[in-house]
Design a protein around this nucleic acid. Structure first.
Lengths: 344, 344
DNA sequence: TTGAAAGCGGTACCAT
DNA sequence: ATGGTACCGCTTTCAA
């Protein structure tokens, strides 16, 4: 550390503004260019050791921190990967996936940034993202249309990846096969001899992206078999669940795919409290394979979902960035496998 | 829309680069200044309606999107509120809080950005955040030291707010009173006649920020009463829980504060499977007041935690930004109230 | 009503 | 080995 003489006590602490590389240069008695060379360890330019020290000390002394915006403005690009915050409430599965991904991207020297674009949709949202000039954009859900992809690419995004049920023209797609989840669940119930299957559809907003295809998948699973699939709207609330359980008998159902493990827990509890035996009177299956399913009695059958590993996705992004011209990849993720336990 | 003559069919589509305001100006036949005036609806300058139209059309035509970095570089400030991603696994409570906050900040015209600073700690992490020149920084957990605050402020952050158990010199603090959570839980158990209290301490990394003060609070609650508090390390895993349950008798405990509702569910299940009666043989209390607690049998007692409302926190940030000189606020959040149900 | 030009904070080419 | 300088894209005085 460089020692600086203490100013006279009377002198008011100057309201110092943010130090720039020019300030560092001045203090070190060198040019801005030299400062840049030293602090970036520029390989092609040789700077004497004493000068390096002077610059480094000056920078430390001033608490200099480079200005990322200025740097990337000059460079003409950044390594920011933008991830709009999802419009749906993030579950534990997604949270884990995110931090995984951030870690993996960091290893490839990308900076992952989650951006809360509240209130904006479609093209407007994409514009807001584009203003940040990210090198790549990873959009969860279905909040992106072809126009959005276009504007992102035109503003320099070298990779646009969607993570959701549908591919978007021009963008790479990680297809979360929600339809397959519903199909697997209903198919499992059918195979266990059930013929009248309820499918919980959460009343909560933002979840339809998932619930609609899951319901559709269930329908497909029983098509032509004579078995039936019935949509069961349900809010995530004890009373709502109790109400549904109360009219269970009148529904004539013998099984239910409860959307996910949390709704399954809710509904199963309500059914049990209503005096029903699980799985005799009603088979129940959830999805997500959360720990809580294993802790329930009877143990909850579920559909295990395998989100893509962070590494893999990061690698995809990296590939796309390096070769923006390549044809959009379109890959199914969410290996959905039924885990049969005791509730079905 | 402005009609442009179609180029000869043979001409290859030029690999167009990102359009700038200069391109818009060129196409509209005006200066860059005029473009800026028009697109920003500058109040102080009057531009004729025909010119405005020409500029707007040109911008649309090119798919022009302003460059946020250039803009804030010129402006000398941004409205970005930076929130480093927490180093602990985000639970449902925190997720909800976050999206609440983002919404509230957006209403005040701030842009909330979550930044995954993987692998960096303390001063280094703060430096990385400072490079983005956010107008405010909101740091969850305990990943900030006074040096970090200093570097952030020196790089122009007008508000630094920590959300965690301890205040940091120079920063506003929202004190999540984890110690009070442990105190409330243990106190409750003591009041219910329990005298040998176990406190689950998660083995998972990153959770010690919470678990240590909770344990300390439990200790304080029984100080001088003759009752005991015993730390119970536990990984979030069925087998681990079963192992702990198996040696429950030898521990001589009659109650347990299970860190949170999820660990409580895990442990309660294991204890029940080991043939113990809840709460007769062991009183159990969790924390967070998640829905799942209400669905367990016996219903789980818990400590309800009230995170600050997004609005409030956003207002605090806004106040701090407007008056950076003000003395750091230091406010307790996390109103911890015991919810007594059946498990204790 | 519009344009010319300076400058925000860096980086990198070209001289010296 | 170092310094001068142009430039990245945008905003904003000041002049015309």
């Amino acid at each position: 550390m460089v020692q600086i003489p203490k100013p006279p006590a009377a002198e008011p602490p100057a309201p110092r503004s943010v130090p720039t590389s020019a300030d560092v240069a001045r203090l070190a008695g060198v040019s801005r260019a030299t400062v840049s060379y030293v602090l970036n360890d520029s390989g092609s330019v040789r700077i004497s050791e004493p000068t390096r020290r002077r610059v480094r000390d000056a920078a430390r002394e001033l608490g200099y921190v480079p200005h990322a915006a200025a740097r990337s403005l000059r460079a003409g690009h950044s390594r920011m990967v933008l991830m709009p915050a999802p419009s749906f409430p993030a579950g534990p599965l997604y949270s884990r996936f995110l931090s995984d991904l951030q870690w993996a991207l960091a290893r490839l020297d990308y900076t992952a940034v989650q951006y809360g674009s509240v209130g904006l949709r479609g093209y407007e949202a994409a514009r807001a993202w584009a203003e940040l000039r990210p090198v790549a954009v990873l959009v969860p859900g279905a909040d992106l249309d072809p126009q959005g992809v276009e504007v992102l690419k035109r503003s320099g995004a070298r990779a646009v990846v969607t993570l959701g049920p549908e591919a978007v023209e021009g963008a790479h797609a990680l297809l979360t096969d929600q339809e397959g989840v519903g199909h697997g669940a209903a198919r499992h119930l059918y195979d266990r001899g059930r013929r009248a299957i309820g499918v919980v559809v959460p009343a909560e907003g933002g979840l339809d992206v998932f619930s609609a295809p899951r319901l559709a998948g269930a329908h497909r699973a029983v098509r032509g078999t004579g078995a039936t699939v019935t949509a069961l709207p349900l809010a995530y609330d004890e009373r709502e669940a109790a109400r549904l359980a109360a009219r269970w008998g009148s529904l004539g159902l013998d099984a239910v795919f409860a959307y996910n493990d949390e709704y399954a827990m809710l509904l199963m509890r309500a059914l049990q409290d209503a005096g029903l035996d699980i799985p005799a009177d009603a088979a129940v299956i959830g999805a997500d394979d959360l720990m809580l399913g294993r802790l329930l009695r009877p143990r909850l059958s579920t559909v295990h979902l395998e989100l893509p590993a962070g590494r893999e996705l990061a690698a995809l992004v990296d590939r796309a960035v390096r070769d923006p011209g390549a044809a959009p990849e379109r890959r199914k993720v969410l290996g959905a496998t039924v885990v049969h336990r005791e509730s079905s």
